[in-house]
Design a protein around this nucleic acid. Structure first.
Length: 369
RNA sequence: GUGGCUAUGGUGAAGCGGUCAACACAUACGACUGUGACUCGUACAUUCGUGGGUUCAAAUCCCACUAGCCACC
């Protein structure tokens, strides 16, 4: 019996958008969904109770970071990630594949795996597809990811091809290494900005039979239009009856486009990181709470927002907290941004259920004019 | 009253005769897409208390004045 069960509940009449229900060992998730990023077993500035309050159904944690500190064995001894961080809803662990990309100088890729130099103390570590799976099994997330190379951009076609083929071979090794049957394993489609490589990658991964499929290697510097094109032609390449996940995406409009192309799951540091840097999302666009125009502004961040922060605090106060370097600024800003993202997803699900996603999408853009 | 010390942007300050006056903070604006991020980037003194002088060249040397601080009477 598979670790997760995914059902498409409704397919939008005019687009590829769909709503669904994903059941995991730690409960079910309504899709499309946004997954807040909690790299180090914490969504920065939020307690699990607060995450529930903003509507989070599943969060992300990271293999590389937790392996480096505090160590996956320790997490396992503490009862696994859920118990360790006091979050009893679903967790997805990223494999460390993105760190192959982001750590740049600090790593060396070979057929066998990746040699990393710790960003904390410079010590050397080796992560292979097998060890990435083993670490993720120790961490105990509901959904684990194949170890991949997030292909850099721009890159020579030949590099992208070899990188994509390596990711595919690693995917086979991940599948082979997997032991636990209470975790779902997702494959990751690479292929850079090349349609033929994306098609090749998707075809080969689908033939292997994963529990879900992710689109990786996007938003690495390419034009938004290019990213949307890729989501557009990659969605249909993936099985309809499995969850489809775009990794690392994105800005609110990117999620809308991803949903429009038939994707179900998204994660991004944008709402949390940008919150800590003073950027707040509203229905009419984003604002920078640091700006002097908000000094005397008694209005909430977003007049139409139903979150705790908008119900109780003014822009003037939030600006003051930010400028004063107060911890509460990070907390309240993160709270609002996550609420914005998660309610956007809830609204999208309702729109899909009522066959009006296309209209919803148009209204989304119209409000930001 | 006498002697000494010090005067550089919103702030704290570098500078000790020779490119566009260092740096930090503050301020303003921007960026951030599977987190190496309460981070990063850009802007911000045509001018160095005031007035004169020396020099090819002065924030830097000299003189006077003004202001502040310290000591003594």
């Amino acid at each position: 019996m598979p670790a997760i069960d995914f059902k498409v509940i409704h397919k939008d009449r005019l687009s590829a958008a769909r709503s669904g229900s994903l059941t995991t060992p730690h409960g079910h998730i309504d899709t499309p969904i946004f997954m807040p990023v909690g790299t180090q077993a914490t969504v920065k500035a939020m307690t699990p109770e607060e995450l529930c309050e903003v509507g989070a159904q599943i969060i992300l944690a990271n293999t590389y970071h937790l392996y480096i500190r505090p160590g996956h064995e320790l997490v396992e001894r503490m009862g696994g990630l859920h118990r360790f961080m006091h979050w009893d809803r679903p967790i997805l662990t990223d494999s460390g594949g993105f760190q192959v990309f982001s750590l740049g100088e600090l790593r060396k890729i070979s057929e066998e795996g990746v040699r990393f130099q710790s960003h904390l103390d410079g010590s050397y570590h080796f992560i292979s597809p097998e060890s990435a799976i083993s670490i993720q099994e120790a961490l105990g997330g509901d959904i684990i990811m194949c170890f991949d190379e997030c292909t850099p951009y721009p890159a020579e076609y030949d590099y992208v091809r070899r990188s994509t083929e390596l990711t595919t071979r690693w995917a086979g090794r991940c599948l082979e290494a997997k032991r636990r049957d209470d975790q779902a394993l997702f494959g990751i489609v690479q292929g850079g900005m090349h349609r033929d490589l994306r098609e090749q990658s998707a075809g080969e991964l689908c033939a292997m039979g994963f529990d879900g499929y992710a689109l990786g290697g996007l938003s690495v510097g390419e034009e938004k239009g290019l990213m949307y094109d890729i989501m557009g032609y990659c969605g249909p390449l993936l099985p309809e009856d499995k969850p489809r996940y775009v990794m690392g995406i994105g800005a609110p409009e990117d999620l809308i486009e991803g949903i429009n192309s038939g994707f179900d799951m998204f994660d991004c540091v944008m709402p949390t990181r940008n919150a800590r840097n003073g950027m707040l999302f509203t229905a009419t666009g984003s604002i920078n709470i640091k700006n002097a125009v908000f000094a005397d502004d008694s209005a909430p961040i977003d007049g139409g927002c139903a979150c705790y922060v908008c119900a109780n605090y003014s822009r003037a106060y939030l600006r003051h907290l930010y400028r004063s370097g107060e911890i509460l600024a990070s907390r309240l800003n993160t709270w609002h941004n996550l609420h914005y993202y998660l309610s956007l997803m809830a609204d999208a699900r309702s729109a899909i259920a009522e066959d009006r996603f296309t209209q919803f999408r148009q209204e989304f853009y119209a409000k930001r004019q």
